[in-house]
């Protein structure tokens, strides 16, 4: 081996080993440990002995009403939020892409802003926007003479989860807009010109040219948005509603936290974690399968 090659290999090892070690120590081993813990009655400080309880935690999970509520809420968010987010991003990026707006750059920056703000700040700001007495939403309803629609958005079971979903969409739409817009700008302009000559209007061009061309990026953004929704719903649910009222906006990650960190039940909370992990893996596989089938057609 030449000296140059040797140096190259050393450099590659130097680059690979630290991240590999970090992944192993902080990701792989804890994940395996979490999986093992989910079959035990372990508590948070590892005292009082840990005994193997088999599938008991998993059996209990499906009889636990609070878990079922958190699961239902999470599923609703995972379906609704990515769908709306990506639709909004698509529409906005199509406007920016084809609208020939002079201020396009400005809008791009403005739409992207929410995704660089700390999510905690987003949650606090929106909990004030939804504030029942001095919030922007209720004040605007007053201004529009729609006072009968005023409510305490975060304190009512019917609207708490919806308010969190809205905030998630607001926070993420700009981020996916940039990704989709990048894909759109790479579409050959000739297609549009040809379509225009053939008499196709804006909507038909969008459906028959833009959408098929950015289909792949849409699937990727939906998967990203689903994992984002799963993660970020914890912060929003914790800060904006604390899972309430009466668990109406409780999500799986928040319930994992409650069981693990408030109740000290590591075993049970790990069982929910494993379930959540499996569920999100299945969901993203399903989305990818859907994409492949579409491609095959």
């Amino acid at each position: 081996m030449s000296r140059k090659n040797f140096q190259r290999n050393i450099f590659i090892s130097f680059s690979i080993i630290p991240p590999l070690l970090i992944t192993l120590v902080f990701l792989a081993i804890p994940a395996v440990r979490a999986f093992c813990l989910s079959f035990t009655d372990a508590n948070m400080i590892g005292i009082g002995g840990t005994s193997f309880t088999g599938l008991e935690n998993y059996r209990y999970m499906f009889s636990d009403q609070v878990f079922m509520k958190a699961f239902r809420n999470t599923v609703i968010l995972l379906i609704v939020v990515p769908l709306i987010t990506i639709t909004v991003s698509l529409i906005l990026s199509e406007i920016l892409h084809r609208g020939n707006l002079r201020e396009a750059g400005f809008y791009r920056v403005v739409f992207f802003f929410p995704s660089i703000i700390s999510l905690t700040v987003v949650a606090i700001v929106w909990s004030f926007i939804f504030h029942p007495t001095m919030g922007l939403v209720n004040s605007m309803l007053d201004f529009l003479h729609l006072s009968q629609m005023k409510r305490s958005w975060l304190g009512t079971a019917e609207t708490a989860l919806g308010s969190i979903a809205f905030t998630l969409v607001w926070q993420a739409a700009g981020y996916y807009l940039v990704m989709i817009l990048a894909a759109m700008t790479s579409i050959n302009n000739d297609y549009y010109e040809a379509a225009t000559i053939d008499g196709a209007g804006w909507f038909r061009q969008f459906v028959y040219i833009t959408l098929p061309e950015v289909k792949n990026i849409i699937i990727i953004t939906i998967i990203l948005s689903m994992s984002g929704t799963l993660n970020l719903s914890f912060t929003l649910s914790t800060i904006m509603t604390n899972g309430g009222p009466n668990n109406a906006s409780l999500v799986l990650l928040k319930y994992i936290y409650n069981q693990g960190m408030t109740n000290g039940n590591f075993g049970y909370s790990m069982a929910i974690t494993v379930f959540t992990l499996l569920f999100s893996i299945i969901l993203s596989i399903a989305v990818q399968k859907l994409q492949r089938r579409e491609e095959a057609v």
Partner: peptide, 21 residues
């Protein structure tokens, strides 16, 4: 008790907004 997954504070107090509404 050990192994019990109930969070009593939540069970007792979380329904209050629903009861008052």
């Amino acid at each position: 008790p050990d192994g019990c997954n109930v969070v009593p504070m939540d069970v007792i107090w979380n329904p209050v907004p629903d009861v008052l509404a």
